[in-house]
Design a protein around this nucleic acid. Structure first.
Lengths: 349, 349
DNA sequence: GATCCAGACTGAATCGATCCAGAAGAGGTG
DNA sequence: CACCTCTTCTGGATCGATTCAGTCTGGATC
């Protein structure tokens, strides 16, 4: 067996407390004894205080949990999520805190257990719906948390988000200004478990996911302002947030007559997928994205920029160093319309 | 105070053990009592067994540590590292294990402490030099670990890597075949704390970082085979593994007379930086990368592909599900030369 | 009626530390 | 010398669970 602090104490002939102090309160014992203890510890092969035992006694862990609503390994394929994580990591680095990435198993019970069993001091929940079940579990554990979307119940929970609706409206206004009226809106999982491609929805409000809902609503606002009503808008569903899913969702869209002159995607990744699918025809259709990931610039994609690392950094900061003023716990970040070459005036027919 | 298992036991009027069994050994008590216990627990607001206490008693944590030799937040800006992480995450997902990302503080003592205090069952060490200090700490803790580079002491430690030297040689052979003789090799931190740009080195062996060392050696092998000796090779240092650092390293290189006809970079990111710096001149200089990240394809970069997610997946798998056969713990993945448009025959002068 | 057994539950030991009140001893002061 | 203070160290309680060897109970078996 690997020696414990107890064994070291016995070997040196002092009490456990003294050995403990040798490690984490050097001022509590004489330097001579301390180095004698550390030497003996080294000789015995004592690995230093057991982190788990320490956490138990101290009452905190020194790690924050990061929860993704989607599969964890997907998160790493989403450039925006990665930059968010980079921000979280930067803040964690500054605070000397570790990051526990918790994958959520597919079964509901097991997913719950994963959140219940995570040894952390708090959670950053990426992209949580208004009331994701995980938030209840976290509350139940009495742990602090931060989400990346405005919470339904304001003033209580901390979050860092953007005004999705206003941001979405800004790109849509841009397209409307270019004369586009016949447009398609593309989103990831607008409704769950729906096949890729066109779908019907009573209104933007009917989208369960709050981020998607906000963006669709913003798009619709701009269109409504010029008299294009919800029923006149084509809605396209992507089965996940990936380039391939974006391409898949618009397959065949431009084959019919009277195809849309523009596609507004709810994320850059989807928009890039649309460009992929359009190929040569990309010169004739306007496409917009959302987020402004690195590839957007290369592809000349018109989009809305939201500060990704900043979002992660602030989320972690809100958790690790909570503002005394409760109201400062709700952060809305600025967004910015970035016009590039993927949008142009409607061609005269 | 938040209630403990003890409190639930008292409230129901049973022993602690029984409550514990209600949570993790349902077959050990009658269904009736069990649901009575769980109900009472809910009423009291008991959050379920404390993960830390459970870990302490059980002797394992259910998380593996991931250690980056560089700053953690840098890791998220390196596309190859991100894909590696995606692979690790996929494996962790399958095993129901969490991932603890441990940032290493700048101070040596504190960095050591970070590794000592991580509550994990093992470590994945990304890109560890032959004998990174962290490996000693991990060994000292008696924890299993996996590295991403062949270990000096084979047969003992587990790793998943590639044959760096052979892989590097394959790109270099390609360039040599195109007639290139006057070339520059570009690497990240070939020597630590050296300014960007040209540097002198006794030989490839003198590079401290094993990955860089292997790649430089492979490049040099191919050149030596056609009579180009080490002294005739220009060596360029980048201060970190980023596009900007790659561009910075070659600044001014092509201003002098007799500039190299090709640049062999030790990573795609650096190579892309070289292309950035070359701008228009990119058509006249051949550039190669290493890794084959997504952007390499877009940029038409000739490179060596190594399976990134696979590397991460196998690393985690080696840790979570160790092969019984010790020899199977050393994995060398295949690499593949990917020829694109960034390389072409030497122009006749 | 004695015996055995399976199922349900208990109690104490244990995981490996940290913390706190207090003891022992050394040195200083009036 | 009595009194006080400071430093150094100790012992026991504690963090919150899990585990395992039992005990107890009721019913089946011969």
């Amino acid at each position: 067996m690997r020696p414990t602090l107890q064994d070291v104490a016995a070997a040196v002939g002092v009490s456990r407390s003294t050995v403990s102090n040798a490690y984490c309160r050097p001022d509590q014992l004489s330097a001579a004894l301390r180095s004698r203890i550390l030497d003996t510890a080294r000789q015995l092969g004592y690995p230093g205080p057991n982190p788990t035992a320490r956490s138990l006694r101290r009452g905190f862990v020194g790690a924050i949990g990061v929860l993704f609503t989607s599969r964890l390994s997907y998160a790493f394929t989403d450039p925006f999520a990665v930059r968010f994580l980079a921000g979280v990591a930067a803040a964690a680095e500054r605070h000397g805190t570790s990051l526990l990435l918790v994958p959520l198993p597919t079964g509901a019970t097991q997913a719950r257990a994963a959140v219940e069993n995570a040894a952390v001091d708090g959670f950053c929940v990426y992209c949580a719906a208004d009331e994701h079940w995980a938030l209840d579990v976290i509350r139940g554990r009495g742990l602090p948390f931060v989400t990346t979307a405005p919470r339904a119940d304001p003033g209580v929970d901390r979050y860092v988000g953007i005004d999705e609706q206003a941001a979405a409206r800004s790109v849509a206004d841009h397209l409307v200004g270019l004369g586009h009226r016949r447009v398609a809106l593309l989103g990831d999982s607008i409704l769950p478990d729906v096949p890729p491609g066109p779908l019907r929805l009573a209104g933007a409000d009917a989208a369960p996911h709050p981020t998607t809902r906000g963006r669709l609503a913003g798009f619709a606002d701009a269109l409504a302002a010029v008299g294009v009503g919800w029923p006149d808008i084509t809605l396209l569903n992507a089965t996940d947030n990936s380039r391939a899913a974006g391409a898949e969702a618009v397959a065949g869209l431009f084959a019919g007559d009277d195809p849309p002159t523009a596609v507004l995607a709810a994320s850059d990744v989807l928009a890039l997928g649309v460009l992929d699918a359009l190929g040569e025809r990309a010169a004739t259709v306007s496409v917009t994205g959302f987020d402004d990931i690195a590839e957007a610039a290369t592809a000349g994609l018109t989009t809305v920029r939201q500060p990704a690392e900043e979002k992660g950094r602030i989320a972690a900061e809100l958790l690790l160093d909570p503002p005394v003023d409760e109201a400062a716990g709700q952060v809305l970040l600025p967004t910015e319309l970035v016009v590039r070459t993927s949008t142009r005036p409607v061609p005269r027919s």
